[in-house]
Design a binder for these strands. Sequence first.
DNA 1: TTATAATATTGATCCTGATCAAAAAATCAT
DNA 2: ATGATTTTTTGATCAGGATCAATATTATAA
Lengths: 189, 189
Amino acid sequence: MYQQLIKFITDRVQLNEADLQQVLSHFKPLDAKKNELVGRTGDLSRRMFFVNKGCLRVYFIKPDGREATRRFAFENTFSTSLASFIGGTLLKEDTQAVEQSELLYISREDFYALLNTIPAWEKFYRGFLEHAYIINTTRLEDFITLNPRERYQLLLEENPEMVLRLSNKLVANYLNITQEALSRIKSGS
Amino acid sequence: MYQQLIKFITDRVQLNEADLQQVLSHFKPLDAKKNELVGRTGDLSRRMFFVNKGCLRVYFIKPDGREATRRFAFENTFSTSLASFIGGTLLKEDTQAVEQSELLYISREDFYALLNTIPAWEKFYRGFLEHAYIINTTRLEDFITLNPRERYQLLLEENPEMVLRLSNKLVANYLNITQEALSRIKSGS
DNA sequence: TTATAATATTGATCCTGATCAAAAAATCAT
DNA sequence: ATGATTTTTTGATCAGGATCAATATTATAA
């Protein structure tokens, strides 16, 4: 149950057994059915999820009422609605289990408390933030420099799992193009 | 010289006088003429800048040879080519003084060394990363949800200084639209 | 299995913002 | 101050991807 999480943490930061147990004690398991929302816009409950199995999708609703996907999180990754997690504000995004998923989560309160008691956890969070920043910057750069076809081809090269595992609808949404456009791109026309 | 920097730091994190002096001792002044590059793509020297006066612009060159602006940093803000600063890699962006500028900078090596010796500095950096993440996420969201006219209007509301202080060319580049398009937007056509 | 809904494909048309081009205005250097 | 360069404006045309619409395919549930 906690093996993947333990490996994820200890691969990134050094901490003694007591501290590790202290950290783990705040993580609770959560099973989610396919399409279930484990976080909803407006919720006060902000959680950091670790995906043991399955896939999470974070998305928000655009002013025109349509959805826009922020990211997908597959096995062995952390995911949260980070802006709200950081700011302690109401959730501004939904988090959806795209597949039946097995999750572990820690509340924002517990997470931040650990930052003050376990220096290694502060380091861990720093690494998480640095990584999140890089991912985000790269994604922004891709939107600025690439057209839809190029964005799809890059995704296929760098993240084939997303294309293989997710529906066209979701992939198109992630790329910020229409299903029709993605269909045409895939058929090579 | 260091007053603005001291205020910036002490507004965000608590640290004793000795630690503060220890931090400040690593910051060196740098004056930059208008249009001077204080960081160049390919450089090994990665610095975190604090803008006492003036304005920095971080940009990269797109595959088609054109520039794309990542951000502007006016007075009393930190700025760096963050992806390279984090990763310790060669710079992938230029940093340009858009106006004659008075800067303070700290090297990546000194910055990271402080993280290990001064816990408050780790907190300070955490805050910086959290803020950078939020800014970046918001910017990505704006690109996904808004058209050029809407992006300009939002900039005008939320950051009028940019529009007032920078040339149309730079503002257009930041918004990822052509000068012609911005000119037409401004004239309300 | 069958009915129903959701997703994917294909075609026709439209619209926004890019591109190309030229003139006007502003800025800069000597 | 004056000439040279850069920036801004304005006009005409073009193209990529959205939209609308209809059909085909796949997935889901009873």
